[in-house]
Design a protein around this nucleic acid. Structure first.
Lengths: 203, 203
DNA sequence: CGGTTCTTTGAGGACCATCAATACGCGTGG
DNA sequence: CCACGCGTATTGATGGTCCTCAAAGAACCG
């Protein structure tokens, strides 16, 4: 780990561009990082990462180009470990290898969940699920604050900003109010019925 | 590996049901296996595996329930290794761990590609890409045979059988003819333009 | 051959994207 | 402090994509 270093980045800084060589394994120490894909000039948010998340693990292991781009959304502290070092440590530190394996298994699981989410649910159901899950994650207080802009959320959920706006309107009929970044829930149950969360999709 | 064993299965045999406990790591020795997800009574093909593919790696590592179900499509020979054994070998065989890591990184990469494919391309573009890729894989002879039924292909590509049928019709205007299971291409180039294959999406 | 499943084709509708216009929020500079 | 500009968020109108339903034809299997 001697070659590793830590760096602070301002918001909206592109850390990695799709197709670049996988020189470093990245770990989010603090802040928020977005992974996004691009194709034909369009882009889509694939993943949102908080502290203690790693990214670009697969590319590091296989010594291949990155499949996704990455940028900071907030001021972020990132730990960078040279890919060659990572691969070299595999030789000497079995425990480290198992840790990476565990991390990669988690990433894979999330990716599969994402695919299922997109393939099975409509956009309103995806939003309902997102709100439901977020509500649970923040302690079911009946209210929480979105910590990303709606445009980004729309992209993450696989829809346009316009459609997200309309979906929020539709959720009003299910006890969800939104004002600015603040979401209020009056009928946790009704929402659950709509989202039909599944342990195997939603972790 | 003492607890491992090999078993032959007839076609259309369900090997794993979503939510079951991850007792075994599976390896396809011969035949074809489908991984599919289910939700609310519907199902969708997530992955198609040929010889030398492993599956259920992530669940084995994390000792969690399977996220997907699996069934044979053809007569298949499957190697089963008890999950506990796999995890135990990690302690003693660093090389084995790295191999598994490599395999899992490949699975993850494919899953990300899948998500991008669904998020960016329309259903016709996905089919065009599938035909294009398959054509390349079989040696660009101008003709190849589908080795799965169209219903399954439709599910894999994230569309209904009806829509797949219509999409094939639409590809006639781009030099693709289909008769039964046999696909004939007259304009490889035109198809490539439509699919706009991307090394980072299509491997 | 008869039944079952798959495939195709057509009609209709749900869902979602696009385009356009307006309103809102926020930081900058007057 | 307010006016302005810029990006975001909302709302409406419209059209394209894709699913659902229905029915008929084709392939498969006992």
């Amino acid at each position: 780990m001697r070659g590793a270093y830590v760096q602070n980045f301002p918001p909206h800084t592109e850390l990695i561009t799709e197709g670049d060589c996988a020189d470093f394994l990245h770990i989010v120490s603090s802040g928020t990082v977005e992974l996004f894909g691009t194709w034909q000039g369009r882009e889509s948010c694939m993943s949102l990462l908080g502290p203690n998340s790693t990214f670009m693990v697969a590319a590091t292991i296989k010594d291949r180009p990155y499949q996704m781009s990455a940028r900071t959304l907030k001021e972020s502290r990132i730990i960078l470990i040279p890919s060659a070092d990572v691969r070299e440590v595999f030789e000497h530190e079995p425990r480290f290898t198992v840790s990476i394996l565990d991390e990669l298994a988690t990433c894979y699981g999330e990716s599969v969940q994402n695919s299922k989410n997109i393939k099975f649910r409509t956009s309103i159901e995806r939003l309902a699920d997102f709100v439901f899950e977020q509500h649970v994650r923040e302690g079911c207080s009946g209210e929480f604050t979105l910590d990303i802009e709606k445009k980004k959320l729309a992209s993450y959920l696989g829809m346009t900003p316009e459609n997200l706006s309309r979906s929020f309107s539709a959720l009003r009929g299910h006890g969800v109010e939104i004002s600015g970044q603040v979401v209020t829930l009056s009928d946790h149950n009704d929402l659950e019925v709509l989202a039909r969360p599944d342990a195997l999709i939603d972790a």
